[in-house]
């Protein structure tokens, strides 16, 4: 009991500072190649060292369903009913994280407090990019064309808060938009020997970053499997956008016809989200095809 008291009492005042979970970092590294899209976004570590997303082992763009599942799985491991009294502290943190992330307003506040703003494609909740923003949005954003990148680390060297090295792919990428002051970013962009750091419109960033992530490609037997990304990510983005626009126009026309059918807001949102994801998947197939031609 004495040991508990010693452990617990300072918590009254320092509970914001003391928490760190190195294990999570480790597991992240390992799982990176398997589901890279999910994990990049939660890379940002706050000064306090405790990130609710890391605690729950989820990505910043997780939907409530994913949060719930992960929370329950962790509870099964740490809840004092199962782990005994030693699970107490951790379960309290889990409860706190769950409570915040499951409530939209609290989650927004929390996201802002850890310096992470979810980049949105239009009004849609779906977040496809991985970089986070430091400070207010600007009309332009940085983007590294990873196809061209040779992994020279020049940019990481010059602006280490903005650019990060992805060791699994051997390419640099933007971790935090405007993580450094403007001059060091300028230097970093200039320093790239292949000029593969681009200024892009903010609205395009999410799509570009999504397409930039290598995805598993369909193989034939043991041949041809692996990871790949579009050869020209800008072209791919353009084509994708065109498709998106067409689809939108299409659905608009369809909506006029089906006006009678009422739909709740939640349903509409869910449908939109699902269809966008589907489109994304389809598009992943499209550029595969484009390359073959």
């Amino acid at each position: 009991m004495a040991a508990f008291a010693v452990f617990r009492l300072p918590e009254v005042f320092n509970h914001r500072a003391g928490f760190d979970h190195p294990k999570h970092l480790l597991s992240r590294r390992i799982s990176k190649s398997r589901c890279c899209m999910r994990n990049h976004a939660s890379k940002v570590k706050t000064a306090s060292g405790r990130n609710y997303y890391e605690l729950l082992g989820i990505s910043v763009d997780s939907d409530p369903q994913e949060i719930k599942e992960s929370y329950r799985n962790l509870q099964k491991k740490y809840h004092p009913d199962i782990a005994g009294q030693k699970g107490h502290e951790h379960t309290i943190l889990l409860n706190e994280a769950y409570n915040v992330l499951m409530k939209d307003d609290l989650r927004k506040d929390y996201d802002a407090s850890i310096g992470h703003v979810r980049v949105r494609l239009g009004a849609d909740e779906l977040n496809m990019g991985y970089s986070t923003w430091n400070g207010p949005f600007r009309p332009q954003a940085l983007f590294v064309d990873e196809n061209a990148c040779i992994g020279c680390r020049e940019c990481v060297h010059n602006a280490r808060k903005t650019f990060v090295m992805d060791e699994t792919t051997g390419c640099a990428r933007v971790g935090v938009q405007f993580g450094d002051d403007d001059t060091s970013i300028e230097v970093a962009v200039e320093s790239c020997p292949l000029d593969c750091i681009h200024w892009v419109e903010r609205e395009e960033l999410a799509v570009l970053e999504y397409l930039n992530i290598p995805r598993p490609k369909q193989g034939y037997g043991v041949f041809g499997q692996g990871w790949e990304r579009p050869v020209n990510v800008f072209m791919a983005a353009k084509t994708f956008k065109k498709h998106l626009k067409q689809e939108q126009a299409e659905s608009l026309r369809r909506n006029v016809r089906q006006d009678v059918e009422q739909e709740t807001e939640a349903q509409a949102q869910a449908r939109e989200k699902a269809s966008l994801k589907l489109k994304m998947e389809r598009f992943a197939g499209l550029w595969e095809w484009m390359k073959k031609v």
């Binding site: 004092p80 699970g87 107490h88």
Partner: peptide, 13 residues
């Protein structure tokens, strides 16, 4: 602080 066995502890500083 309430633990899983519903024990309530009040701390003040």
């Amino acid at each position: 602080d309430i633990d899983a066995s519903n024990m309530l502890t009040v701390m003040a500083g």
